[in-house]
Structures are given as structure tokens and as C-alpha cells.
Simulated scan of single mutants.
Amino acid sequence: MAHPSEPVDGRSDAKLSAIVSERRQLTNLAYRLLGSLADAEDVVQETYARWYAMSHRQQEDIDAPGGWLTTVASRICLDLLRSARVRRERYVGEWIPEPLPHRAEWIGGRSSGGADPADQVTLDESVSMAFLVVLDAMTPAERVAFILHDIFGYPFADVAAIVGRTPEACRQLAVSARRRIQVPRPDAGPSTRRADLVRAFKRAWETTDIDALIGLLASDATATGDGGGLVTAALHPIEGAGQVARFFVDRPTAAAGVTLQECTVNGQPGLVARRNGVTVSVMAFDLGDDHIHHIWAVLNPDKLRSWTATC
């Protein structure tokens, strides 16, 4: 006789394996939908909690556990996106998505050597800071329809069941979302060239060389900071090469006891600012046509928990 806790046949083992293997996919989906790793992890945990809250018979009646998990996680994210619009009205200053380090730099139970690949986000163009910022300008329904269909390849019939609209309405949501995505500007070149641009910015900032900074910035460059009301940050974006350069020159890193290090931020070259070994800011860059077009500086400590003390 089989022990009560043991599967009576291989089907339960196979279904459990399928359930567990979906964790990484769900984390990838939830992060792209929410722009927050902490919220994404909460969504995944809640999704699994709902699965295990069902009886064994209810679980067995679900033919496609992966599809069920995706539907539940997406609906939770949709509810969070709707409520986030209300929360953002009370957020102090600008809101920037949570930056992600290279997987070798993760901490909080995800450090190199002990990392669980299922808990990590695949770093590609769909998680670049520039892309996430555009996603954040979409309506919740647009964002869910666009990401599920265009990024993860779900048919509109499945998206409709999640969003609660017809497939044709979801198709129109995706079309509307695509309109929000600007035509990509000329690329800054190979990854080495992009890293060189960030390195040159770092050097110019450290030496307070305003002319060098202006030369690196596009004429319409902007810089946005996110302190979340917990630390000091500019409440509104700084606009124009001259203004952005002056902003950084007026805040010399040496005077603040800050050291800058080059790191990978959401799969792209970026900078990490540390004081006494503690990460105080993570900067992501939008690079193109051999210039820096936008700088996003995340200073909110709640969004820096995934960063180690060293790169």
C-alpha cells in the first residue's frame, strides 16, 4: 500500500514537476508586468499558495497546470497594476522600476554559487530600464495584453480570459500598447561602446568635468531620480544636456564620500554608487547614437535590496 504522502502513480510526480518548473516563467512574467522584483516574488508565492490550497482532485482536474498558474499570476498582477495607479498618486517624486543586477551579483538568498535559477529574471531587451519605463506608461490592460501576447506569445483568446475582454478587444489593446513604444533610436554600437559611454560619464562626473559631461549627453537628455520620499532625490526630471551636466557637477561624488562602480543594470551597462560599502544608488542609461539620452537613478533603499556590496 502506498504511503498517503506518496503519489500512487507517475502522473502526480509529473504534475508536481511541471508546477515547480513554472516558477521562473512566472517570475519573469510578473517582473515585466509590475517592474518590481519584490512584488513579482509576492505574486509568484500567492499563485502557488492558491494552487496548493486546492484539493488533490481539483488539481488533477486541471489539464494544463502551467496555463492555470499563468492565468492566476496575470490576474493578480492586473489587480496590483490597477491599485498601483492609486498608490503612485501618493508616491513622493518620480517612480522608477526596480533595477536588477546581473545574476552573479544577486543577494537575499540568490547570491552567486547558491542562486536558484528558477528565481531569476532573464535579462533581455524586454527588461531594459528604457523598455520598462515605457511599459509603465501603459494602462494596466494594455500592459498585460501586450506582454502576454508580444513578449510571451500567448494567443489573444487566452489573454482575453485573463483580462476579461474579447479577443478582438485584447488585440486592440496590444495595438494601442505598441503605439506607445517609440521607434528605437540608433544603437550606441557594440556592448563595448555602450560600456565605454558609461565609463566616460563616470570619469567626467568623478572629475567634475562639465564640458565632458555635456559632450556625452544628447541635447535633449534627461535625468530622473527615485528616492521614494525615503532619501533626497530630485522630485522632477532634469531636462537638457546643460542642466543635467550641472546637476551632476554640483553633486561631486568625492565630497559625498561616494564611490562609483560599473555594473550591469537590467542587462545593460550602468553604474552603482556606494558609500561605506552600502549601495546608495543604481543608475541605468538609455544610450543611442553615441550619446546618453536618459539617466535613471534609483535611490529608494527599498528597491536596492537585491544589490551586493561589490560588483
Rank of each mutant, 00 (worst) to 15 (best):
P7H: 11
R11C: 09
R11S: 14
R11I: 10
S12W: 05
K15H: 05
I19T: 08
R23T: 13
R23K: 13
T27V: 15
A30H: 02
R32S: 05
A38I: 09
A38M: 10
E41M: 07
T47W: 01
W51I: 12
A53T: 13
M54F: 11
S55N: 09
Q58H: 15
Q59E: 14
D61I: 06
G66I: 07
W68C: 08
T71K: 14
T71H: 11
I76W: 01
C77M: 12
S83A: 14
A84Y: 02
V86K: 13
E89P: 02
R90H: 12
G93V: 10
W95Y: 15
P97Q: 04
P97R: 02
E98W: 10
E98F: 05
E98I: 12
W106Q: 04
I107T: 14
G109T: 13
R110L: 14
S111D: 15
G114S: 13
T122G: 02
V127H: 03
V133R: 03
V134K: 10
L135S: 03
P140Q: 08
A145F: 00
H149P: 02
I151C: 05
G153T: 14
A157H: 09
A160Y: 00
A160S: 12
P167V: 14
E168M: 10
C170I: 08
C170T: 06
R171Y: 15
Q172R: 14
I181F: 12
I181H: 07
I181A: 05
I181P: 01
V183T: 14
V183H: 07
P184A: 11
R185D: 00
R185K: 14
R185P: 01
R185N: 04
P186G: 11
T192V: 10
L197A: 03
A200N: 13
A200K: 13
A200R: 13
R203H: 05
A204V: 01
D209I: 00
D209M: 04
A212D: 11
G215D: 10
G215H: 06
L216H: 04
L216I: 12
S219K: 13
A221C: 14
A221F: 03
T222R: 11
A223E: 02
G227S: 11
G228K: 02
G229I: 05
A233I: 06
A234T: 06
A234K: 06
L235V: 05
I238N: 00
I238A: 02
I238W: 03
A241M: 04
A241Q: 02
R246N: 10
F248P: 02
A254Y: 03
A255D: 15
A255Y: 08
A255H: 11
A256F: 06
T264W: 07
V265R: 03
N266W: 01
G270W: 02
G270I: 01
A273H: 01
R274C: 07
V278M: 02
V278C: 03
V282F: 05
V282I: 15
M283I: 11
D286G: 09
L287W: 00
G288L: 12
D290F: 03
H293T: 03
H293W: 13
H294F: 07
I295Q: 08
W296H: 04
D302L: 15
T308Q: 04
